[in-house]
Amino acid sequence: MLLAWRMWGHIILFSLLMIPVALLTAYLIGRQRASSGIQHPFRTPLADALSVTGTLPWLWMILTPGSVPAPARSLSLTPFRDLTTLAEGFTGTLIAQVGGNLLVFAALGALLPIRSPRLARLPLVAAVAAGSSLTVELLQYAFGLHRVSSIDDVLLNTTGAILAAIMTKRWWARPIPEGTVPG
């Protein structure tokens, strides 16, 4: 735990400090939208602020260069190979790796369907999460960050977003009935 704090403590502190800023921004935007007569004026700005605040720290960590003795570019395209290797090693590393990867796009997955009725479908959440995760893995590889670009990370990131979306299902935005929106 101490090693994690030494490596990522500055990101954790910055993220915690950004939460009030994000909430204040969402409140101000929502208040402006409320004065315009928009129904549910706080839904979109709050979902946007929290999804960004909940996702950016993970991206910051992922796109930080890894240890220099590791190869600059490493690619793992066989599904579950990295997870199997982790399972054979130290349990704490397995928990940290799997747990962290499940959380990378969890905020995004949880809040996209709350934000918009168009995005309130699990296949769309999965597609956005998988596309975002693939982009991050490609960036890791392209920038030579001394990290493994792994299909297992894409699978875990996507799974985390889907699980988070399922947990927020009761608050998803409802589709707007046909013919009720002025043309």
Score class of each variant (00 low, 15 high):
A130G: 12
I162R: 07
A130L: 13
L112I: 02
S149D: 11
R31E: 15
A129Q: 10
V52W: 14
D48T: 06
L17H: 00
T159E: 06
I11T: 12
A173P: 00
L94R: 10
P175D: 11
L102R: 04
M7Y: 04
A120D: 11
S15F: 07
I95D: 14
T91D: 04
R73M: 11
S35G: 15
L94D: 13
V154L: 06
V104Q: 07
V148S: 04
Q39M: 13
G183A: 15
A4N: 13
F105E: 12
T158Q: 09
Q32K: 13
P177F: 12
T93K: 03
L156D: 05
N101H: 15
G160Y: 04
L46C: 05
G92P: 05
R147F: 02
S133G: 06
S15M: 08
M7S: 12
Y141M: 14
R33W: 11
I162H: 05
I151G: 07
A70F: 14
M167E: 02
A173S: 05
A4Q: 13
L112V: 10
V125Y: 07
L28I: 01
L86P: 01
T85V: 09
T91L: 06
A34W: 13
Q39G: 14
P113M: 00
A129R: 10
S76Q: 07
A22Y: 09
T78W: 08
H146M: 03
S51M: 14
T159C: 06
V181P: 02
A164R: 03
R33Q: 14
G9S: 00
G99E: 08
L156T: 08
H10C: 03
G30Y: 13
G30C: 09
L83K: 04
Y27E: 15
A126C: 08
Q140G: 02
L17F: 05
R174E: 12
I29N: 10
H40N: 15
P41S: 13
L102V: 04
V125R: 07
S149M: 05
V181W: 11
R170Q: 06
P41F: 11
G99R: 02
Q97N: 14
I95S: 08
I176R: 15
P45H: 07
S35I: 13
A164P: 00
R33L: 15
I29K: 10
A110Y: 10
